[in-house]
């Protein structure tokens, strides 16, 4: 648990324990809107298992990554729809 990883969520630096998924880091950063829907609604994770695609964010400039399935790595840059 103690191995801390530092990453950035929407430019804000945050430290998390090893084994934390990106979706959890986003929640820890206090962000509730992961993506905007077609009609502009705020959305966040639903299934937590890689199926619903509601948790899509941009990770290291790659868009549409399922944040619930990706483990945090040192220096990651994560962006949600703001």
């Amino acid at each position: 648990m103690s191995d801390q990883i530092e990453l950035r969520v929407n430019g804000k630096s945050i430290r998390v324990a090893g084994g934390t998924v990106v979706a959890a880091a986003i929640a820890l950063a206090g962000v509730s809107c992961f993506r905007k829907s077609v009609l502009g609604e705020a959305r966040g994770p639903l299934c937590g298992m890689g199926i619903c695609m509601e948790c899509r964010v941009t990770i290291n400039a790659q868009p549409h990554c399922r944040s619930c399935q990706v483990l945090c790595e040192e220096g990651m840059e994560v962006r949600t729809d703001e």
Partner: peptide, 18 residues
């Protein structure tokens, strides 16, 4: 946001979701 599947929330909580 904040409405998740029970299993999904449990899985995320095991992976650091607060």
């Amino acid at each position: 946001p904040g409405i998740l599947g029970p299993g999904g929330l449990q899985s995320l909580a095991k992976s650091g979701w607060p």
